[in-house]
Simulated assay, not measured.
Amino acid sequence: MKVKQEKLLVCEFITGGGISDEPLPESLAREGALMRDALLRDLRELQQYQITCLHDVRLGASIYAHKNTAVLAGEFKKTFKKALKQTDFVWLIAPETDGILLGLTELCLAAEIKENGSILLGCGYDATLVGTSKTLSFEALQTAKIHTLPVYSGEDLLVQSYFDEMTQLSVIKWVAKPEDGAGCEGVRLFDTLETLREWIKQDNQYLHYFAQPYQTGIVASFSMVCRDGKAWLLSCNQQHICGENNTFRLASISVNGLQTYWQRFETLARKIAKILPDALGYVGVDVIIDTELDKIFVIDINPRLTSSYVGLRESIGYNPAKITLDCILQANFKLPVLQRNIVEIHFE
């Protein structure tokens, strides 16, 4: 007798038509497709779900989904809402930029509370909000006594007395970051605070940008799964970042390339999960390791799938989608024994 499979919707925002009415950046589409297809392959292998995937009409459909729904220009939200009504589970992959992930999370949580509503396979509203807002993230990390870097509001920088105080800080270089940015997107490097202030004055950028001291060190991340304020570490990764014209881009990742930091990353993972009790499923955390001071600074908390997922299956020798689903859906979740292979992922 054939068992009826539950329906699962996978929505990777960039390739899924989220910017169907805008030019499609090739690099973002490529990175998004890598994450989407890695997840779809892992889900399909489980043979538990009938998988539907949204795709931008300008892009080809994924060969790993059972059903693909094309999203026409300007019709993402309409198509997404319709698909949400026709599925049992939804797995989002979306950037924090412009509140995109937060907005889609709200839609999913609103659908979840309805009778027979689809279940979101991801973080709750509060964890997503903290992950979206760099200011809230800084405050949460500081409260938990986790090393992080201070953030200075763009609006405050325009106040001369505040700016004068800032120039007295012992900071060699500065970065400007969007309040709700994702990864390297929108980050710019400046030699002086004055040139940063002049830049954020343009086009009222001070309203959604902040200043942060530029921290040198090993650029890294770790992947974990969370539930009920607990965390289980999956991998310790080194990120290889390229700088060009005072901007940054992610060139490659060595998944599990920083295993010497396993114990310290595991401690950080548990501390972060404790301050984000509704963090659920996969979470990625970006850090910078200052080897001179022997400190690890937490830079970003990403309440979603991250690029490291692409190499995670090969690295840990286990299906990471199964781990994530078990963590979300099983109250007595236990992490299986994982391998720690170093896997290189290239995005260029």
Rank of each mutant, 00 (worst) to 15 (best):
M1V: 12
E6K: 12
E6W: 01
T15V: 15
G16D: 01
E22R: 12
P25G: 09
P25S: 06
E26W: 00
L40R: 07
L46M: 15
L46G: 06
G60T: 03
A65Y: 10
A73K: 12
E75K: 14
T79P: 05
T79S: 14
W91Y: 09
L92V: 10
G99T: 06
Y125D: 09
L129A: 10
G131D: 05
L136I: 00
Q142M: 04
S153D: 15
D156Q: 12
D164L: 14
I172F: 11
A176R: 12
K177T: 08
P178E: 04
V187Q: 05
R188H: 11
W199K: 11
I200H: 07
L207Y: 01
F210V: 13
Q215W: 00
T216G: 14
S221E: 01
M224S: 09
C226D: 01
R227C: 06
K230L: 08
L233Q: 02
L233K: 02
Q238W: 01
Q239S: 14
H240A: 00
N246W: 00
N246T: 00
L250R: 08
A251W: 00
I253W: 02
I253P: 07
S254D: 11
S254Y: 01
F265D: 08
L268F: 10
I272S: 10
L276D: 03
P277A: 13
G284D: 07
I288Q: 06
I288G: 09
I289Q: 05
I289H: 11
D294T: 01
I296V: 15
I299T: 11
I301V: 15
R304E: 02
S308Q: 09
G317P: 13
G317A: 10
P320W: 00
K322E: 15
A331C: 01
F333R: 04
V337I: 15
H346F: 08
F347L: 15
